[in-house]
């Protein structure tokens, strides 16, 4: 069977690419420390020696639109073109092409349907910065095949938080039962507190540092029970109007397992939002 060698949860900050590649007067003062933290985080994936990456993210109204909106969607294609014109325009992100791991996509779809998740699928998916940001930070060679998993954290009605946790648990079960000798890492990105297009946007910190502190505690401690007790679709409006992206962190807690403490935790308090990086090694310690 395949081996789950790393579980990684991260924020996806679209400004990282520009900040880390800028020089001279264009380089922001927070860039050097940010790069240092990202490179240390990257090492947690590198030393797990994955062959395949399952990438959990959310389309930001790029390919998925309100006339046909899936809640959970799995890409099944041999290649994925990546990044969109408005991401090049606003964030300076490069165009990319990633290989797909189609047999794992097919397995996740078939077995996921049979496990009670009515997953949508796409045979031609252009992916966006929710998946390319962690490729840029964690695997800039962009050389490993991927299985993209998109969640709807963006266009209500949304699935309940517990559904994200359940999907995470199911993704783990499916990877561990996949008849293959591949080493698989799951990488999912979301947000802590975040405001976009509202009065609290682009402040000196994330819009709700207290929520961020609790969220990091829940994730780092694998405290799914407490997180589910305190987080609801309604409550997530309070820390910031885009904070429903936190549910992708909850999905990753489901992948990592109940009560499973993260093996690596780091944060970086930036303007606009707090960065947060977590890695779990399912068998304990990198090999």
């Amino acid at each position: 069977m395949a081996e789950l060698v790393a579980v990684i949860a991260s924020t996806h900050h679209p400004f990282y690419y520009r900040a880390s590649t800028s020089t001279g007067e264009d380089r922001p003062p927070f860039a050097d420390e940010w790069v240092r933290k990202v490179e240390a985080f990257r090492e947690t994936l590198t030393k797990a020696r994955p062959d395949v990456l399952v990438m959990v993210g959310s389309d930001h109204f790029h390919q998925l639109w309100l006339d046909n909106m899936p809640q959970f969607l799995v890409g099944k294609a041999p290649f994925y073109d990546a990044n969109w014109a408005n991401e090049e325009r606003e964030f300076g992100l490069p165009r990319m092409v990633l290989k797909g791991q189609e047999d794992l996509s097919a397995y996740v779809l078939r077995e996921g349907l049979d496990a009670g998740f009515d997953l949508a699928f796409s045979n031609e998916l252009r992916i966006d910065h929710s998946i390319t940001c962690p490729i840029i930070t964690l695997r800039p060679e962009a050389d490993l095949p991927i299985v993209p998993v998109y969640t709807n954290i963006f266009a209500p009605p949304l699935p309940q938080p517990k559904r994200f946790v359940q999907l995470g648990r199911t993704i783990r079960e499916l990877i561990e039962s996949w008849p293959s000798d591949q080493r698989v890492a799951v990488i999912g990105t979301g947000h802590l507190s975040l405001e976009l297009g509202g009065p609290r946007q682009f402040g000196p910190h994330g819009p709700d540092p207290e929520f961020d502190r609790k969220a990091v505690e829940w994730i780092a401690g694998g405290d799914i029970e407490q997180c589910l007790a305190e987080v609801s679709l309604e409550s997530l409006h309070l820390p910031g109007n885009a904070t429903h992206g936190f549910m992708d962190f909850m999905l990753m807690m489901g992948v990592a397992g109940d009560g499973r403490k993260a093996d690596y935790v780091d944060t970086y308090d930036l303007f606009h939002t707090m960065e947060a990086y977590f890695t779990w090694y399912p068998e304990g310690g990198a090999r």
Partner: peptide
């Protein structure tokens, strides 16, 4: 949808401001 509004208005008007000036004005107006 605030994300759609923000993204389009940044595309149109960020160029008229320094740094994050437009984004901060946007927040102030709300």
């Amino acid at each position: 949808h605030p994300f759609l509004t923000l993204t389009l208005f940044i595309a149109m008007f960020e160029r008229d401001h320094e740094g994050l000036g437009f984004q901060l004005e946007y927040a102030r107006r709300l």
